[in-house]
Nucleic acid binder design. Structure first.
Lengths: 191, 191, 191, 191
DNA sequence: CATGAATGAGTCTTCATTCAT
DNA sequence: TATGAATGAAGACTCATTCAT
């Protein structure tokens, strides 16, 4: 996607794009503004990306990857599945809540025709570790006997919708709110 | 004296907008194309809506209302909560799956800055019957002791994400897939 | 120009047009607004005028005629030329100052290509009585031996410019201001 | 690095706008046409001006300044007031007559709501040298004891109206016509 | 390789005029 | 004759992309 040279500039462009989306919404994500915010000349964006579409795709994948890595970073192999699932889920919940721009960006483009099939495929692939984790748990009879992908989608969708509800209504979720949400989530998949 | 405002045109415009979103994505939702698809002159749209933004808001609310009414139409007061919940959920699942344009339209704009606060508020209000239903069930000790709104958001989000997964991967959900999804959903909220 | 029927409606349209020009400037002189302000249906304007251009031309001529008649109404044949000139000039000055909309309307369109040659010609013809008056005075050796038309144009232009200056700078002209202006004017043409 | 802003384009735009006003009247002063006439892309105008309104304001001020400078260029400090006044006036008369587009442009917009208060203010300021000149002459008892601004407005208005009369009736003013006009003008202000 | 001026197709919206009722 | 909904040709302005420097 993005050429390797000057990775810092690419990140500056990513940050600029997110910042702008936060401040003015998606409609003002113009190349000129992104460039300006990133302290780069308009034309220079095209050194790093073929065009706007490619930039969006790259940013999308970047955010997905970043989030997944952050989640997986809390994984502790020596702990039980439940402990790990709780930790991973909590990380996901908090990340989504604390970086709403990134979450909205992902949400906004996940089902947009701007995303290329290839991007979609790569994004899917990022879920593999999670699927493997669930599959193991299924083998251990800890989870319902339902395709792991369906479970994951349900968990993600349900959790995000609740996060968005909190954000949209400007509610700061308390410990017990988060606990409630986890309870719902865990009940939904546990055997 | 003069021609009366032909309110059916509003629905023609709605249909046209949805059709276009399905065929070419959201970026081609131009007023000119919507008008053309609806068999109406460009300028005539402005007889029925103040502008693009108002049209989007109106369509959004229309779709939300339509969906909610379709759901509630299957409600049978004499039946148990579980039976009704299953029916309502199934209707929601199938509607989303069978009319993906409408679902995507709603999803796409739910968190867009184009939606006015007023539209958002009215959309919220549409959930009231469902919330009441859940609250009653909570009183009967059928559901977890968790705020009804959180449960609803989780149910909706989880279900939609699974539907979108099916659509995105061009999977036709079989009876047992739907059953699995319901199982997840029901487990998530039942006591 | 305007068909005879329902002269009151024509005047309502004239008034509406002037009112709108005063309130929102020339750019918002739309047929729809004029009609609304006049309490008439948009389409009905075309019963009275062939189109916008004709309406403007008619209004222009109407205003010119009205102003000239108001001026001439103060003419007193038994009085001297100077007395009459002063009276006529004063009327012109005050009319322009007290009905700035009408003055601006005339000014705005006098050299606009919207005015038809015919309108221009008829407007010229309205000056005849004044020209005759000046010509007589020239014969009596009261005025410079310069073409009357040139003198009239100079008088009108000079006076209007001063009026516009007062209006533009929100100055209420005092007796002596008006006297000064008349002094300038009279010196300019008297022998 | 990149192309530098080609400031000559601003003048090409000015010329194009004037040309169009001359050829087709003010209503065809569309940005697209101005750009085309100037040999520039439509969008490029917006590199030099924020919008149509700003362009008009800038052109207006440019024309006013240009005219004033041309006038003042004939001023000869060593000559008497009358000689200088005659020269300045003549320059004004001829400039107006020889460049009717520019004169009409100025006239057309002087009382238009398109002009910003700031533009109006700056235009006013351009008159200062003339006012000073008249004030000195008043001190020398050469002119009537009347506010200089009133005298200037009267002179300008009267003169322009005569010029417009010549142009409108396609009369080529002869030496004696011009002399007559000056005579009127000078009589109007001299003591 | 960086820059940002230049491009022009495309966008929303307006409005004089027409025409069905 | 009166009405005002319908029309669709402009109009001002935007913005992804190109390209001269």
């Amino acid at each position: 996607m993005a050429r390797k040279k000057d990775l810092s500039k690419i990140h500056r462009l990513y940050d600029a794009a997110l910042q702008l989306v936060q401040e003015h919404g998606f409609h003002s994500l113009t190349m000129a503004q992104v460039a300006k915010q990133a302290g780069i000349a308009t034309g220079s964006i095209y050194t790093y990306f073929q065009g706007k579409e490619e930039m969006i795709n790259a940013l999308y994948l970047h955010l997905k990857l970043e989030k997944m890595q952050a989640m997986l970073s809390v994984y502790q192999p020596e702990e039980s599945f439940l402990v790990n699932f709780r930790q991973l889920w909590l990380k996901y919940f908090l990340l989504s809540y604390q970086e709403p721009d990134k979450m909205h960006f992902i949400e906004q483009y996940t089902y947009s025709p701007l995303l290329s099939p290839q991007t979609r495929q790569e994004a899917d692939r990022l879920l593999t570790p999670l699927i493997n984790l669930l599959e193991s748990a299924k083998q251990e009879q800890l989870l319902k006997d339902i395709p792991a992908t369906i479970m994951i989608q349900h968990v993600i969708g349900g959790t995000l919708e609740v996060v968005k509800y909190f954000l949209n209504h400007e509610i700061t979720p308390q410990k017990n709110d988060i606990e409630s949400c986890f309870e719902i989530t865990w009940s939904s998949i546990k055997k």
